[in-house]
Design a protein around this nucleic acid. Structure first.
Lengths: 224, 224
DNA sequence: TTGCCAAGAAAGTAAATACTTTCTAAAGTT
DNA sequence: AACTTTAGAAAGTATTTACTTTCTTGGCAA
């Protein structure tokens, strides 16, 4: 006696009513996409072969036929994402427009990638704490130290050294953003020269360019 | 018949020969420190109650008496780290020194914290791939797109619009660093105004301040 | 010293999850 | 139409790990 497995047992598969069983490259791509979504949604720690298979509407053995384990799968997912998200720099014949075009493309392309870094980092904690993802990130990444940064500028303003209103806020945040950025990239304290360069080559000239610093103020002069 | 548990069974405990059983706050601090190390070493995904207990040379029940589960423990670990790593801004009476002092303190204090973000993100993958942590990070975070960025400047140099040698490399990298930073913080593509501000309020004035841009070149002028 | 509380050892339970096996039936090929 | 390949369903095993229980003994206070 042959029993077919309950024809109309449930919602069959994708959008199509019948079945349309995928194979080969198409199936593989669907799995990798599902893996990406899973990574973004629940993070590496909570991603399982079963969860990816379910999201891709396929079964675990299909995954294991292709990748030996979870790590191999995740690597393949990351590779695919990178391969399908190449950033190209436009050539407009003008530095400003080149930069804006490229930075925009970069930003859009990489946003998703970084999202998984964060999801992967904190998703495990989110569930337990009831914090929102953004709350968690802000807490972890130090937005809470903004009040401190304001102090530095306020004191300088009190001394008459600086006119904070003369520069866009992005400029004032700049050195802290750069330190945070370097930390995230290198995971080590910044060399003293780099901090010096941020202050002397970047921030102070910029404050001067915006006319926010008294050019005669000796101490704020760039050395050498 | 009472059997004492094999007196010299192995290395007893910490540095001290005897035993010196810790209690209360001291023990708790040791556990949280061990939790931190574990987080940095193996990441959230691979941190287990057992691994933390082992590293702290105590036993699982001791952890469970204090924290209901792994997430609670990790939260306590993060809290302790933050509590014991407060950054203070020095007051030197001078903006430049204030900034350098504060950025240095910030950098040293946060380096460890960000280390766990990365470890937590990628540790699972490291074992499988044989890649080093820094390789993994560079690959993931896009150092590989540096060649592209050089193109933008090289073309501008070819056109005679820019003299790249006139500015420190940190200045040229600046806009890309900022985009990467914002992405890491917000996980969303940057608003067009922010990109405009990076280029018009920050990079271009800076290039001009360093004398790297032809002031007469119309296209590279800041608007309004 | 006596007694209480907490640490630590050992062992155990239950659930999640990695990974496998077997079989059936689609998809694509000749 | 016959055949090969591989998707997908179902079920099973083995390991890991969360979390508990019990008991012994050390640290500390009255």
């Amino acid at each position: 006696m042959m029993m077919t497995p309950a024809p109309g047992s449930d919602a069959p598969a994708s959008g199509r009513a019948g079945a349309a069983r995928r194979r080969g490259a198409a199936l593989e791509a669907a799995i990798l996409d599902a893996g990406w979504e899973e990574l973004v949604d629940v993070g590496y720690a909570r991603l399982t072969m079963a969860s990816v298979a379910a999201r891709a509407r396929t079964s675990e053995p299909v995954l294991y036929r292709r990748w030996a384990n979870k790590d191999q799968l995740v690597l393949a997912v990351l590779d695919r994402y990178r391969a399908t998200h190449q950033v190209t720099a436009p050539d407009t014949g003008d530095l400003r427009n080149d930069l804006i075009g490229y930075l925009t493309a970069l930003s859009e392309s990489l946003a998703g990638f970084f999202a998984i870094v964060a999801a992967t980092s904190f998703s495990g904690l989110l569930a337990a704490t009831g914090r929102s993802p953004s709350e968690m990130r802000e807490e972890a990444m130090g937005v809470h130290l903004l009040p401190q940064t304001r102090d530095v500028y306020r004191r300088a303003a009190t001394r008459g050294e600086l006119d904070p209103d003369a520069v866009p806020t992005g400029v004032l945040a700049l050195p802290f953003d750069l330190v945070r950025h370097d930390l995230l990239m290198s995971l080590e304290p910044l060399p003293a020269e780099r901090i010096g360069s941020i202050v002397d080559d970047i921030l102070l000239p910029l404050l001067r360019a915006h006319g926010a610093i008294d050019p005669g103020h000796a101490e704020s002069r760039r050395r050498r």
